[in-house]
C-alpha cells in the first residue's frame, strides 16, 4: 500500500534528478521525498476521518463525562478520552480549570493532560503505518499506564494543594454551547476544518522532523548511535529523555526521526523513551501549565514524567533485548 510513495521517491530522486543509488545525498533525499509524501497524505486522511467521527467529542462533553465518576474507572476513562479528544496545548488551561470545577479529581485531570498530547489518533496511525503495529501497541499501552499511574500518585500524595488558588474560585457558567452539526455534510465540513487547522499547526514540525530524519538517515554513519547510545550504554535511556525535553514536537513530527533512529539500530526502549519525552515533556507545555500549577507541582510533574519514561526505556530494552 505504501509502495507508491517509495516509487514516487525512486522516480523523483533517481529518474528525474539522475542521482546514483547509495550516495549520502540520494539516501537522504529519497527518505525525505518518501516521508513527506507519505506522511502528508496519511495525515490528511487520518485527521479528516477522525474529525468526522469525533464531531461530538468536545471538551465540554469530556467534562460532563468525567464529572461524578468513581475514581478507579475515572483514571482509565480519562486516559482513553485523552487519546480521542482533540487537544491543543493552548486549551490545557481552560480544560484543567473546567475539570476541577466539575469536581473531577486533580489526578484524573492530570491523567488526561499526560495522555492527550502523547497518545492520539495521529500518533497511532502514523506509528502503525511507518513502524509496525507492535511498536504502536507498546507505545499506546505504556502511554496509558504512565498517564494513569501519574494521576493515581498525584491524588495519593494530595498534590491538589499545589494548584494555584485562583483556580478554585472560578465558577463556570452554564451557557449552552451550540450543538455540533451531526449531518454527514456537517461532519465532512468539520473534518475538513480539522485538516486545515491541524495541518496548519503541525506541517512545519513534520517537515523539520522529516528533514532531521533524512539527515540522520543519509549522513550519520550506520554504527554511530549503536556505538554511543546502543544497548551497551547504560546511560542511553536517561540521555534520550533529556534530549527530548528541548526537542518539542507533536507526535507527527517526531515519527520520521524515530523511524531513522530505529533504522540505525537503536534499541526500542531507548527510542520509546525519546518519543514520549519529545511529545509529553516540553518547556512550552510546562509554561502553559505554570498558569494553573504552583512550582512544586510542576517540578514533581516533570520529574515524574522523566522517571516514568526512563522506566519504560529500561523495561523495554530488557524485555526486547
Amino acid at each position: 500500500m505504501f509502495v507508491i510513495f517509495t516509487r514516487l521517491a525512486d522516480w523523483l530522486v533517481f529518474t528525474q534528478l539522475g542521482l546514483a543509488h547509495g550516495t549520502k545525498l540520494s539516501d537522504a533525499l529519497h527518505f525525505f521525498v518518501e516521508d513527506v509524501s507519505k506522511i502528508f497524505v496519511l495525515l490528511t486522511l487520518i485527521v479528516f476521518v477522525v474529525g468526522m467521527l469525533r464531531t461530538m467529542m468536545t471538551p465540554e462533553r469530556l467534562r460532563h463525562t468525567l464529572a461524578g465518576r468513581r475514581r478507579g474507572p475515572a483514571y482509565v476513562l480519562a486516559g482513553l478520552l485523552g487519546a480521542v479528544t482533540p487537544f491543543c496545548s493552548c486549551s490545557a488551561v481552560p480544560l484543567f480549570i473546567g475539570l476541577l470545577e466539575a469536581a473531577v479529581p486533580m489526578g484524573v485531570t492530570m491523567t488526561f493532560l499526560i495522555t492527550s498530547p502523547m497518545v492520539n489518533e495521529v500518533a497511532v496511525v502514523m506509528l502503525g503505518a511507518l513502524l509496525g503495529w507492535k511498536l504502536t501497541a507498546l507505545y499506546f499501552a505504556t502511554g496509558m499506564v504512565v498517564g494513569i499511574v501519574g494521576g493515581v500518585i498525584i491524588d495519593a500524595l494530595g498534590l491538589e494543594r499545589y494548584v494555584e488558588d485562583y483556580v478554585w474560585k472560578i465558577r463556570m457558567g452554564q451557557a449552552a454551547v451550540p450543538a455540533a452539526d451531526l449531518t454527514l455534510k456537517g461532519r465532512m465540513a468539520y473534518g475538513w476544518s480539522q485538516v486545515r487547522e491541524i495541518l496548519g499547526r503541525v506541517w512545519l514540525y513534520v517537515l523539520l522532523g522529516i528533514g532531521v530524519g533524512a539527515g540522520l538517515h543519509g549522513y550519520v554513519p550506520a554504527d554511530f548511535f549503536l556505538r554511543h547510545a546502543g544497548p551497551d550504554n547504560p546511560f542511553a535511556v536517561p540521555l534520550a529523555v533529556l534530549a527530548g525535553i528541548p526537542l518539542y514536537s507533536n507526535a507527527a513530527g517526531m515519527i520520521p526521526i524515530v523511524e531513522a533512529l530505529l533504522g540505525k539500530g537503536l534499541p526500542v526502549g531507548t527510542v520509546l523513551a525519546l518519543m514520549m519525552s519529545i511529545t509529553a515533556l516540553s518547556a512550552p507545555e510546562m509554561m502553559i501549565l505554570r498558569k494553573v500549577l504552583k512550582l512544586p507541582m510542576l517540578v514533581f510533574f516533570a520529574a515524574y514524567l522523566a522517571v516514568a519514561f526512563m522506566v519504560v526505556g529500561y523495561l523495554f530494552n530488557a524485555i526486547l533485548a
Partner: peptide, 30 residues
Amino acid sequence: DMAAIMSYGVMSTPGVVIDGVVVHAGGVPA
C-alpha cells in the same frame, strides 16, 4: 481573562459570543 472565559461555560478556545450568546467554541469558526 480565564475566569471571564469560563463564566460563559466555554472550555475550548477560541469561543465566540455575540450579543451575550455563545455561538461557537473550539477552533476557528467556518
